[in-house]
């Protein structure tokens, strides 16, 4: 599973490059929105952040199921690593959403279904990380964590449908919606480049974070071994 370090570095450089191009597209090349004006450019941060966060929590969910099945800490390392990055990305989604909301809606926050479920998503996975920090034994942390991660994942399909099911201040989906995307093609292209950049960065961070988890596992194992011997 260990990858050569040049691969990690190349991935990091590629992520940086694509994000830089994405930033240029989003801040310079893409047109302003007919209704919202310039401030709509915040979308190029806000939407890729939450989509990548969904991806991160999906990886956590799958890895958690695999852990419960096989009981191998290698799966748990993937789960916790992906969740941590997902929390950072959800935090960015909430922050950029507040700023975009203040500029267009006129309020930083309101308790509609979409915003509430996103706040719940953030809380669930912050709770997940805290729960794991409190559990003393790695296998126990992994087991409780896996259950919470799988339960917490249910928030994502609900949050995606929230703007369809309930009345919200947040607008419905622009891309995954009946009748196809309701977005200018240049804007859509810009969004896709930014999303690709963030997914690359996520992959880079994930590999790095997994390496951290495995290093820690090795240290714990060594210490246990020593304890038994002496």
């Amino acid at each position: 599973m260990d990858h050569p370090s040049w691969l990690g570095r190349a991935l990091g450089a590629l992520a940086g490059l694509v994000l830089f191009v994405g930033m240029y597209l989003g801040l310079v090349l893409a047109p302003p929105d007919a209704v919202q004006g310039q401030v709509q450019r915040i979308m190029y941060l806000h939407v890729p952040s939450i989509v990548t966060a969904y991806l991160a929590f999906t990886v956590t969910c799958v890895a958690s199921v695999l852990y419960l099945w096989k009981r191998e800490l290698a799966y748990d390392a993937v789960a916790v690593s992906s969740a941590e990055i997902g929390v950072v990305l959800t935090g960015i989604t909430l922050a950029t959403g507040c700023i975009w909301g203040k500029a267009t809606w006129g309020v930083w926050w309101t308790w509609d279904a979409r915003l509430t479920l996103t706040a719940i998503l953030f809380t669930i996975y912050v709770g997940y990380l805290m729960l794991r920090a409190f559990a003393e034994e790695p296998q126990a942390a992994a087991r409780y964590g896996a259950v919470l991660a799988i339960l917490g994942f249910l928030d994502i399909p609900m949050n995606h449908m929230a703007v369809q099911w309930w009345r919200t201040l947040h607008q419905p989906s622009s891309i995954l919606r009946p009748g196809g995307p309701s977005m200018d093609p240049v804007m859509l292209g810009t969004l896709v480049v930014n999303l690709a950049g963030l997914v690359l960065l996520y992959t880079y961070l994930l590999l790095k974070r997994i390496r951290l988890e495995r290093t820690r596992h090795r240290a714990v194992a060594l210490r246990l071994q020593r304890g038994r011997r002496g």
Binding site: M23, L27, G37, Q38, V39, R41, I42, L45, H46, S49, I85, V88, G91, I92, A95, T96, I99, W100, K102, A103, L201, L205
Partner: peptide, 22 residues
């Protein structure tokens, strides 16, 4: 705050969060 002020704030927050995590 003007439009570009909000945009700068959003990009600033996101950059600091990601760079800080890295």
């Amino acid at each position: 705050m003007g439009s570009w002020g909000f945009i700068a704030l959003a990009y600033g927050v996101a950059t600091i969060a990601l760079a800080g995590y890295l």
